[in-house]
Each structure stands twice: as C-alpha cells, then as structure tokens.
Design a protein around this nucleic acid. Structure first.
Length: 583
RNA sequence: GGGCCCGUAGCCUAGGGGAUAGGGCAACAGCCUCCUAAGCUGUGGAUCGCGGGUUCGAAUCCCGCCGGGCCCGCCA
C-alpha cells in the first residue's frame, strides 16, 4: 500500500522525499504523509493549500489498495481499501512470498569471542544473542552470512588458568568452563611475583607450541554448550594461534608497514615500535598514536585485530585450514582449505568500552587505502549487563551464581512451575518441551529487547517475567493461532474486512518486512521484539473481541489467523525462539 | 584536556523533526456457560534531567549546563 501511495504521489510531486507514518486515530485514515509541509517551504506556499491541491489531483487516479485520500489541514491522509489490500497481502504471506532478492555481499558477523577460561555470564550472553539475532536477520534478508567466533587462545588469561589447572587442586567433576572460572578467580587471588613469572613463561610456551590447544578446546566446547542451549551457533571458530601459525598475521604486518601513516618510531617514548599515527584524526587527544607492534616485536591487541580484519576482508593472500568440529568448523593447522573470510561487510559485536580500538581498526583500513572496506566495517557496540550492586568481573568472580547456565536453569525451573500450574493435563514430556522453549525464549527476549546502548541491570524478577512484553506472551499468541487453525480448514473467501480489529491486524502484518529491513539497516535487532510484541497485542485484541470459528466471516478470519501465525513464527525464529503450537 | 553513550510516571522501556509522548512491571476495578485468562478491558500515575536556540512544528536537531557510565596503555 505504501508503494501505491508513493507512486500516486510521485505522479504529482516528482522527486520530493516521501515518508509515511500512522495516523493518530482511525478517523483520520490509515496512514499519512507530511510532504505538503516540505513542499510548502520550497514553493513558499501555504501547506494546507498544497495538500488540497494534491488531493484534487489524485482524486481521479486509478487506485487498487487506496480507497481515498483526504487532507486534514496540511496532512495527507490515506484510507486503505482493506478488501483488496488485505486479500492480496494474506495470500502473499501464506505463500511466504517475501519478495526479497538475493544479496551479492557477504557479511561476516563476529560475536561472542569470549576468553576461553571461564563460563559465560549474562554480559557474554547479551553479546551472543545480539550477534545471533542480527545474523538471523541478515540471513532472512538473503545475505551470504558467516558467523565467526574469535578464540583468543594465546592470551594471558588462558595462561593464568592453565597454570592454576596444573598447580592447584580443585574438584574436577564440574562443567569444564565453570571449573576454569573458579580456578581463574583463585589464581587472581593468590598470584604473586613468582607465580606471575611462571605464568609468563607458560604463556611464551603456548605461543611456541600447542600445549594449550586441547585445554582451550575443552573450555570452548563447554561454553558452546550453553550457547547451543540458546540456539546460538557459529560457522567457524577462528583461533588466534592459527592466524599466527598460518603466517596471516606476518603477512598483514608487512602490509601495514608499507603504509605511510604506520611508522617504525626511531625515537621518543615509542622508540622501536610500529606505530599508527592518528594525530590528524584526533588532534585534541593527549596521545593519539597507537602502538601496533611493540619494541620486542610482539603485536598489541589492536595490532592483531587489524591483521585479523585484513584477513576478514580478504586482503591477505595466505589462508588457514579448517577441520570439522561437531556442527561447525574451527581453524586448524591441518585440515582442508575452505572459503571462510573474504567478507564485503564486517560486523563486530563488541562492548562499547572498545569503541576506540574498533575505530582504530576502521581507520587502519582507510589509511591502508581500503576506503570501501572501512565504510563496510561496523562496530555493534552494546552496553554491559550488571547486577544491582556491582558489575560482573571475571577476575573477581562476581559472576558466580549468575552464569548463563544458572540463568537458564533458573528460568527452566520457573517455566516448569508455570506449565505445571497452567497445564496439569499435559503429559510430562510435553510439559518439559514447553518449559524449555519458554525458558530459553524468556532469556533471549529479555536480553534482546533493550536497545544495545542501554545498560541492563539484571534482576531475576524481570528476567523470569513471563507476562506482558516477554517471549511467552508472543509464543502464547502463536499457540492461540495454532489452536484455532487446528479446528477448521482454510479456504478461499470474498473479503469483507470491516471490523477495526481486522483492519488493524492487516496493517500490522504488512509492517513485518519494513521492520526487519529497518532492524537490519540500523543493526538494531531490538526493533524486531517491539514489532512482534505489537503484533501479538493486536492479535490478542482481535482474538478477544471477534469470534473466528462459527462466525459469518470464518474463512477470512481464519486466513488472518493463519497469516498472523506465519509472521509470529517467522519473527520468533529470527529471535531464535521456538514458536510453540501448544502451551 | 579531549571523545563517545545514557537521562522519558514508583521501577523498566519505545519513539531520534510532525497531529493527543506508546508499552510493560507494580497498584486498583472489571471480564472465563464462548476458538488456551501466559490473555483482554478500564482507572490513576510524565515539568520527556535543566536552560537557551533553530523550525510552521522539538522527547527527537544545535549550543551550554547538571547527573550517571565508558574510553584516550609497548593491558587484553
């Protein structure tokens, strides 16, 4: 309907920018535009007169989906012909004809990238859920999408934990990541000069040989278990050690050295370091230069990250090998060559605190002459999840009691309780299935529904809320649809969409693709939860005021229910939440 | 010193130039002889942090404050 409205407007106003929005109330039509204001400014005329003029010019034009166009002062209000529009829309939805063309660009989304020495806490989950949801959205819009998880297996934290694993006594019958998390906290507590020396030595040994690989893989496997419970999956795990051993990093550093803005300092405090000069970009910064390679020849975190991104964008010749590992691939020094990397668009889901280093990575691409790559480099920054009293700290162990596993377990208990009290009639196995889907959905939804730049204070009460703006609310609307659909057969109908609830539902269904595209363009997946919540609300209101089965308009309402069910299901899938048929 | 983000009812939050600022939680009052009440309807509750400015029009854009957070390492 927007398309038709736009076409009509174009025929009289030409290239002027047009946007549509909802009217404040149905008496003023179904949607509106404010183009008359803008035209008035340009033509120095009264906006109301312009609106009137447009209305009269469009009066006689042929329309299929628009019934009428009126002006209310300077506002242009469109009245939709719900019979033609609704009928066509429902048919398209039922055919799942989304009209999305396949995209040429390859998108690489990196998310999670948690140090492999601890269990995931809610902050890590926020990262993974953001990344996973965004990836699902990109895939739905038919981008070639690759999900990477970067494993920093050479970091000092791994060395510290490995040291503790070898030298301290612990109950080892725990999930491996939890065990390591506790070891890490303990090492941080007892660490002294001697231990630190041993850890440093161990770290050097890790870089020379693969002594830590199995240890790290075990931890990653345990972390990935938590994530797969949340239906979060990856295409490939990139181990830092493989980037080093494949020679990719060295090749990238050589490339960086060719750049005139990246120089080997011969004097000053950065003497002997390879430094990126950013004085022009950040003139007011105390120390705008960024060290990429230290005077001892080792790379800094940012240096490595730049090298990694040169690889991600396909700007280095060397490549890694990969081996199949459960349902995904991981980089390896033996194995097969694969086509990972070589992205056109790179999205990194990384905390806000890394905005500056991320900006440096983007700038490095620009300085190296890859302007187009720099433009397609996005840092999806998100704020942290904290407890009412304090922040999560891996070192201090404030995450204990708040790991992803514990959250899921708690949610499952609560969900089981709810199912038990609401549906005692169901067989145990079914109750369990529903509880799992509800628990998992509640966790995902409650984390993704907030705009990424908002800090989240974790409270059990909110996290385990199954009412209102929550996953079960939407799952429930979906189950209601299914329940109706089970009781009758779909058939063709002569449309007569006259009830306000029917019209509102049609309008809301129509917005699905716009909202997804918006969420994708802005890289703000929470927009999708807002939309689905709206749709569920509109449907519930329809459900409560209109009868479907046994009504005179049964066939058309069944079609509405079917379309709603399809969109709710698609939407829930994009959020990685199971659309239950019964609950 | 500089940069970025946040500030919307008791609590959480949407909206980032357009018509009366949407929701949710909590509170209160109704609604199951009718497709699942994890639902629906209604009531109360907002100087959109403060002060200027731009605009026909500002929660939204600009400037200045105030409050909170983050960043500017040869740490990761």
């Amino acid at each position: 309907m927007y398309k038709e409205a736009e076409k009509l407007l174009r025929s009289v106003i030409g290239d002027e920018e047009i946007t549509f929005s909802d009217t404040p109330n149905p008496a003023l039509g179904d949607f509106s535009t404010t183009v008359a204001f803008n035209l008035a400014k340009k033509k120095k005329k009264n906006p109301k007169e312009i609106a009137e003029e447009i209305v009269s010019l469009l009066k006689e034009k042929e329309k299929r989906y628009i019934k009428e166009i009126k002006n209310a002062g300077p506002y242009l209000n469109f009245y939709v012909n719900y019979n033609t529009f609704g009928y066509d829309l429902l048919r398209k939805i039922m055919e799942r004809d989304w009209d999305i063309e396949e995209k040429k660009e390859k998108v690489i989304i990196e998310h999670t990238s948690t140090n492999p020495n601890k269990p995931l806490h809610m902050g890590h989950l926020r990262n993974a859920i953001l990344g996973d949801t965004l990836a699902r959205i990109f895939r739905f819009l038919r981008y070639n999408t690759e999900i990477q998880n970067y494993i920093d297996d050479l970091g000092i934290q791994v060395a510290e934990t490995l040291w503790g694993y070898k030298n301290l006594r612990f109950e080892k019958n725990k999930k491996f990541d939890h065990l390591l998390g506790e070891i890490y906290v303990e090492v941080e507590k007892i660490k002294d000069k001697r231990i630190e020396r041993e850890i440093k030595e161990l770290n050097r040994e890790m870089e020379r040989s693969d002594i830590s690989r199995e240890f790290v893989e075990r931890c990653v496997e345990a972390q990935l278990k938590t994530l797969s419970d949340l239906k979060i999956h990856y295409d490939v795990l990139i181990f830092e050690s493989d980037l080093v051993r494949s020679g990719i990093f060295d090749e990238a550093y050589e490339k960086m050295k060719q750049c005139e803005n990246i120089v080997l300092e011969t004097e000053g405090e950065n003497k002997g370091c390879l430094v990126m000069k950013l004085g022009n970009v950040f003139p007011d910064m105390e120390n705008p230069d960024k060290v990429l390679i230290r005077s001892d020849g080792t790379a800094t975190y940012t240096g490595k990250d730049i090298a990694y991104h040169l690889w991600k964008f396909g700007l280095v010749k060397r490549n890694m090998k990969y081996k199949k590992w459960n349902s995904l691939y991981l980089s390896s020094d033996t194995g097969e060559a694969m086509n990972f990397g070589r992205g056109d668009i790179v999205i990194n889901v990384i905390g806000v605190e890394q905005s500056y280093p991320q900006q440096v990575v983007r700038l490095s691409l620009e300085l190296l002459g890859y302007r187009d790559k720099a433009e397609n480099f996005y840092h999806l920054a998100y704020e942290h999840v904290s407890l009412p009293e304090e922040k999560f700290s891996g070192r201090k162990g404030t995450w204990i009691g708040y790991t992803g596993d514990e959250l899921l377990e708690e949610a499952l208990l609560k969900a089981m309780e709810e199912v038990e009290s609401r549906r005692p009639d169901l067989p145990e196995e079914k109750k369990m299935r529903i509880a799992k889907a509800v628990a998992m959905g509640a966790v995902r939804y409650n984390i993704i529904k907030y705009a990424p730049e908002k800090k989240i204070t974790f409270r059990w009460k909110d996290a385990l809320n199954f009412e209102g703006d929550s996953s079960p609310y939407i799952q429930y609307a979906h189950a209601r649809c299914c329940s109706i659909l089970k009781k009758a057969e779909l058939q063709d109908f002569d449309p007569d969409f006259s009830d306000p609830e029917e019209k509102e539902l049609i309008k809301t269904l129509y917005k699905f693709l716009f909202e997804i595209k918006k969420a994708c363009d802005l890289k703000r997946p929470h927009l999708l939860t807002k939309y689905l919540n709206d749709l569920a609300t509109v449907f519930n209101s329809f459900y409560n005021s209109l009868k479907v089965i046994g009504s005179e308009k049964e066939s058309q309402r069944l079609a509405l229910v079917k379309a709603t069910q399809i969109i709710l299901k698609e939407g829930l899938q994009l959020l990685g939440i199971e659309a239950l048929e019964e609950m």
